[in-house]
């Protein structure tokens, strides 16, 4: 859930090392350009509130959801297809109705959000970890290593991410014995999406690293005999994190959509533990028969989530780019 942290993490970037005595970190943070641009952008404020609400809904789903749809034992099949805002066969009330298995749509959305966010966030972190390491190595070393890594990245960028994810998913499925596949499905999904998105990170980090490498502080550290890995992690990395955070935020939105797409295609998480994409796949079966709520509510939730995270990413990109200020 990196978009939550973004304003906070970004603050140190704004601290100039030669600034006069700061009036306290909090004051300083509130005075920063980031906060200023945030308070001036109503769209961003709304987006962050929606994203925050959705994330809270996901995190606290076990506490606030009226039912637990992931516990098959608690379902009553006869409650299936209850319309929104009505009482079911067994006398339970369902605000957003139930699906074809008698699952409460509202609770399923909350739990589905958890799966979507979990997969999205971990996949982005995974992509980030690979992308940053390879990007730093390529940018700092240059030469053959750089050429090899960047060509691989170029090749990968020329394919749509979803195809790469499908390919990785398919290979992983082939490697795992059938009896273990469902337990591993979420992790396979994370790896597949992560591996399909590392190239953007690697490219950006490599570019920034090449710029930083020329700078005096890196030369100084090198002359002092600091180990290259320490130089990269302690000195170069903090200075290339700005653009990485922007990509990570937009990447999170993309990863969520990618997960939804894979689940929609039926290759994602099992239908008994649905993510938003799985819910949409299930719901669209009932488009023609009049049970619109099974599709509509998860779809709206997915749109809100992806849109708000995307808007936050856009804002962050502008806020961190001095040329646009």
């Amino acid at each position: 859930m990196s978009e939550l942290n973004t304003p906070g993490t970004a603050v140190p970037l704004e601290q100039s090392p030669i600034a006069p005595k700061p009036p306290g970190r909090i004051r300083q943070a509130l005075d920063s350009d980031i906060v200023y641009s945030y308070t001036r952008s109503p769209v961003t404020i709304i987006a962050s509130i929606i994203a925050l609400l959705l994330i809270l809904m996901a995190v606290f789903a076990p506490l606030i959801a009226p039912y637990n749809p992931f516990n098959p034992a608690s379902l009553n099949l006869m409650d299936g297809f209850t319309p929104p805002n009505s009482t079911s066969f067994s006398g339970n009330y369902f605000a957003l109705g139930t699906d074809h298995q008698g699952r409460d749509v509202l609770s399923t959305i909350m739990y589905g959000l958890r799966v979507s966010l979990f997969v999205g966030a971990l996949a982005t972190l995974f992509a980030m970890a690979i992308g940053i390491s390879l990007g730093l190595a390529a940018g700092y070393n240059g030469g053959t290593l750089d050429a090899v890594i960047m060509r691989i990245a170029d090749i990968q960028l020329s394919f749509p991410a979803i195809l790469i994810a499908l390919l990785i998913f398919g290979i992983a499925r082939g490697l795992i014995p059938p009896s273990q596949q469902e337990g591993a499905a979420v992790w396979v999904l994370i790896v597949a999406i992560g591996l399909s998105n590392w190239a953007q990170f690697a490219r950006t980090v490599r570019g920034a690293t090449m710029v930083e490498r020329q700078k005096d502080y890196v030369s100084a550290a090198r002359i002092m005999g600091v180990h290259p890995i320490v130089i990269l992690v302690r000195h170069v990395l903090p200075n290339v994190m700005g653009p990485v955070l922007v990509i990570a935020t937009i990447g999170l939105a993309l990863a969520i959509i990618e997960e939804a797409t894979l689940s929609f295609l039926g290759v994602g998480v099992p239908p008994t533990q649905p993510s938003l994409g799985t819910l949409i796949r299930i719901g669209q079966q009932f488009l023609f028969s009049g049970e619109w709520w099974i599709l509509l509510f998860p779809a709206i939730t997915l749109i809100l989530l992806a849109l708000s995270v995307n808007l936050l990413g856009d804002w962050l990109r502008d806020a961190l780019n001095p040329k646009l200020r």
Partner: peptide, 11 residues
């Protein structure tokens, strides 16, 4: 599930 057999569904 209601009688305690926890089934994972592989589709």
């Amino acid at each position: 599930g209601q009688i305690g057999i926890q089934v994972t569904l592989a589709s």
